[in-house]
Amino acid sequence: MASPLLEASELTMVYGTVVKTHALKGVNLTINSGEFSSIIGYSGSGKTTLLNILGTLDRPTSGTLRLLGEDITKMSDEQLAIFRNRNLGFIFQFHHLLPEFSALENVLMPTWIQSKNGSMKMASRAKELLELVGLKDRINNKATALSGGQQQRVAIARALINQPQLILADEPTGNLDSETTEQVYDLMRNINATLNTAFVVVTHNDHIAAKSDRIIEMKDGLITRDYPAAAMDNDAVWKEIAPKYCRYCNRDLETDGATALLL
């Protein structure tokens, strides 16, 4: 039995003082190590707010959050910064590389922040990671000289450099074409399998969600459904994610077919 990597209980988030917006209304969530989960839901359902809180980038209005057994809500901003650097990896929609630096330097950035010595060792690890994401020939390219998919793969390598147990991704394929989306997804899945890194991916892409271990659906600031996609067959998953496509569910759907539907 894997110990929980992340335990959130009764998380609420209220924006504004005069006109109050309840972005989260009491979220309970447990993530286990090595789990690949997707959070889906309409815009404004609170997905990104939740992810930012789970990633310690934002503080909840109330509720508690434990990461790796530590109570995050009691930490100072500076402590949180160090915690993030050591234990979490981030992948953002717009890849957010530093354009002034090369692919290799971007991957090394989290280690520089930690001011780790033994940079030679780190540099070789960064090169390995860039090889893992298929960018062996591009390590010295400036971030701006890479395509969107390549940049996102650099961002994935960067998220991995400090060997975090949990990677949080906010629409990592949001602005990539479908073929690149597939590659990036496969890469994340591959890392999940080989390094046992847990992923929490916020996505609009039902196709990615369908291939997760676990699907978490959100609506109006609450988790409405949470089911293990890995344990279900394809039809059942699609029935859950997209009931409106149910008329196709009777057919023998292949992955490609599902993609076609989405397109």
């Binding site: 910064a81 981030f90 354009p99 922040i113």
Partner: peptide, 16 residues
């Protein structure tokens, strides 16, 4: 500001 934001998300302290 974008770069500073990313650096902070990756664990750069405010002092840094």
């Amino acid at each position: 500001s974008k770069q500073i934001g990313i650096l902070k998300a990756m664990g750069t302290s405010s002092a840094s």
